[in-house]
Design a protein around this nucleic acid. Structure first.
Lengths: 107, 107
DNA sequence: GCAAGATATCGACCGTCATCGATATCCGGA
DNA sequence: TCCGGATATCGATGACGGTCGATATCTTGC
């Protein structure tokens, strides 16, 4: 129980990070190949500081990691973070009661 | 491509719905058993209109469905919605490139 | 129909966050 | 060490959304 609550607390930032449409698109793009900020800026057609900001949110949520190479900072997805999230959702779905008639008496 | 974008657009509301901590707790509670609003209000220790509001968001996101019975409205999880989401995340994780060296030339 | 309980809706307030412009920091080449 | 390019940070602004109180709607029993 407590462990579940802790696990959920650790997962929430990732879900919140994915909830923004622009960040969702970034994750989609990074699911194909690792990209640097300038690629993402061009692909998303938004200002570079905005891309950096959202990448920071994704990085702090553990969804992406970065890697400097010469001038550029390459970002790539961390698949394990997505898999952890997917597993959590599957567990929730699996634990849902199948018997729709069983109801706790009310108030 | 277009189908993927559409699918993503349909999934985003569910992710956004799960991003709120109170709604996440509601989903957790409903993963155990179906509950009416008064149960949730008591369990979460918040005002009843607030619970109704969040339930509406979850319902419109397709994550829960409701069922009236006498005085009360029972809510239950829709496991298929969570599974669809989990599948989407798994696909993204699976499509992530494993070769960390392969980089598109920059700018 | 009327009253009481359960739930949903509405309006207002307020904090958070996405966005933008300007600027700082970092890196590599000359 | 100086310069230019790439990225990160900062401050301000505006909008979205969570919360609360009041109230409307719906259901059931009398």
């Amino acid at each position: 129980m407590v462990a579940d609550l802790v696990a959920e607390a650790e997962l929430t930032p990732a879900v919140r990070a994915l909830a923004d449409p622009l960040r969702a698109r970034i994750v989609e793009l990074l699911a194909t190949e690792q990209l640097c900020v300038c690629h993402l800026t061009e692909e998303l057609a938004v200002a570079q500081p905005l891309v950096s900001h959202h990448l920071k949110v994704l990085r702090e949520a553990g969804l992406v990691e970065s890697d400097r190479w010469r001038y550029w900072t390459y970002y790539r997805l961390r698949p394990d973070a997505l898999l952890t999230l997917a597993d959590r959702l599957e567990r929730l779905a699996a634990s849902a009661p199948t018997d729709t008639c069983e109801r706790r008496p009310c108030c």
